[in-house]
Design a protein around this nucleic acid. Structure first.
Lengths: 340, 340
DNA sequence: TTGTAAGCGTTATCAA
DNA sequence: TTGATAACGCTTACAA
């Protein structure tokens, strides 16, 4: 016989026990004598045996994999620091749990639905992360229909049963506005991302209520799509308003950086003629000229926590929602006093 | 009995045939009467049955999944347009083939090795993409040892058996240098990425040979790491050289953008005092000020082709290497004539 | 061309 | 506390 990989039968035989007992031991089930357990573990270790997930999945209907379906344009993913950092956080947890991440990048809603359905039909994953929540997100109903364990990244708009791992981004936006007001700005514009996203919507709301709190009238507000192109176009629109604002709050860093580019191209100085703030804490923002004042969150911790919560949901059937530390303003040089 | 998902047995029974025949039909195997085949397909379709990959994998030892292990800092992934675009390309092919992408993001070589070994030990994937090739890349030996089908993204340095999907990036670098020379530049610096990567090494070599071809002496050359921080620091070093160059070629866009930021912070104008070129064609580069002259490749096509080749390698045991269209220079406004 | 039956490597059930 | 033995859902010899 060729030296094929050892199976549970080989381990059982070598340890002089039945397959069932070996299974009990690797699954940490009670009812096995301590010395028997130790012996089995020793043999398994010596033979370098571990249960194969796909064989196991046949009887348990568990795949030991978690799914993440991302519906975004590649261009947007490319410039979003959330994406890889969140993934790194998830990954750091999964490896220790013998889990694996199945990732799917789709471009439209139809492909997105199909992706979730196929993941379930093919029993590819035991649960999924729901990111980029929309205000009316049909994935909430979908995962319920499919009986697919899921957790929401960022609080869904409607009240939901789903465990949620959330991070308050409104605080950072409020800090941005307050920072600008303290510097003496009175006309502060806002470039929103896509407000069909919960986070896009919430950030805009935070801007509006902060302006109100400062007893300033909000606007101009431009709605766009979180992309560099969108940020530049929105900035152009803002420049056309009269009276022109002296500062602009952007809903993410990419739009802010593109916005600064457009301002400079039009001959305006940042921050002398226009102050600018971003959101994300992208690495690049430290090295632009001027360096971008922005709001930084901790997406890696977000991913880590999300993975832990999802695993708990899968194994225990329920899990708590978690609120992470809020995003914080980091002041750099793209903001300053308005020139009179 | 509850209405559990149909299995191959249900389909066989309903169609009045054996399980074996159903299996033959879904696997497109010859030797089934045409009308029988049609009837079986009709029944399967009607019942909404498809073979479950994990049940299938037990006998075939195929997982219907492809693996991609990425060893990079999240920060670097975050700013690299290659990553999501390549992934989108891969994904666009996989879905049609009932395949899934298992992605792993690791931070060091030890975790990387472990990731590949676990993927194989757990029979998680049928093959892997090898990206970010190093000049002496131990993964080539590793996949050989593991018997893991793999394709190289970008040509490995040493002669290898692996099918390769490559894209000539040296052409774009040469174009960059030629463009600058035509504009009248004679002292052209270079900010390399990490030259332990094949692509980092090749780009630098392309710069050097282009300079030689133009009968100019190469340098200053600064080696760094493809990050924004690295790009800024390298630029600072270049500014310290005497005589100072009038143009700098950067090995990627992020370093180029950070470099422009540093130049401007030091009071230099781009391109009047210093021309700058990048590499990647990142979306953001169109909207910086000035807009970045850069080299654009098509990483989405790269991913698409890579997926097709890898699938062929897995199913047929061999696959051709493919050479994609070379990257091309796109001139924008970060390059101009040197001021005398 | 079709059916039967034996795997594939686990976990689950039920006795002992 | 342990051991047989039957699932789990599919593929694949081998027979018919």
């Amino acid at each position: 016989m060729v030296d094929r990989r050892p199976t549970i039968a080989d381990v059982a035989q070598r340890a002089g026990v039945s397959k069932g007992l070996v299974s009990f031991v690797v699954n940490n089930r009670p009812g096995v004598a301590a010395d028997t357990r130790a012996r089995i573990l020793a043999v398994a270790d010596e033979m370098g045996w571990r249960p194969r997930p796909n064989a196991r999945s046949l009887s348990t209907r568990r795949s030991s994999a978690l799914g993440w379906v991302v519906r975004r344009e590649p261009d947007v993913v490319a410039t979003d620091p959330f994406f890889p950092a969140f993934m790194a956080g998830v990954e750091s947890v999964l490896a220790d749990h013998g889990q694996v991440l199945v990732l799917s990048l789709v471009s439209d809603a139809v492909a997105e639905q199909r992706a979730y359905r196929t993941l379930v039909a093919d029993a590819r994953v035991d649960g999924v992360f729901l990111t980029d929540l929309h205000r009316a997100d049909d994935r909430l109903a979908l995962v319920a229909e499919l009986g697919l364990p899921a957790i929401a990244i960022g609080r869904p708009d409607a009240h939901q049963e789903l465990p949620t791992v959330d991070l308050d981004d409104t605080h950072g936006v409020a800090q941005s506005v307050e920072h600008l007001v303290e510097l003496g700005h009175r006309r502060i514009g806002y470039v929103a991302g896509d407000i069909s996203f919960v986070h896009g919507y919430r950030r805009r709301a935070a801007y509006a209520s902060s302006m109100e709190r400062a007893e300033l009238s909000a606007g101009p507000i431009v709605l766009t799509d979180f992309s560099a192109a969108g940020g530049a176009a929105a900035t152009s629109q803002i420049l056309d308003t009269d009276p022109r604002p002296t500062a602009v709050v952007y809903a993410n860093d990419v739009m802010a950086i593109a916005g600064m580019g457009l301002l400079q191209q039009r001959g305006l100085r940042v921050p002398e003629d226009m102050s600018v703030t971003g959101f994300d804490g992208a690495a690049l923002g430290r090295y632009t000229y001027p360096a971008l004042t922005t709001v930084v969150a901790d997406p890696m911790a977000w991913g880590r926590t999300a993975a832990e919560v999802l695993l708990q949901l899968i194994t225990e059937g329920h899990a708590p929602s978690v609120e992470l530390a809020p995003a914080q303003l980091v002041v750099r040089t793209s903001t300053g006093r308005p020139t009179p």
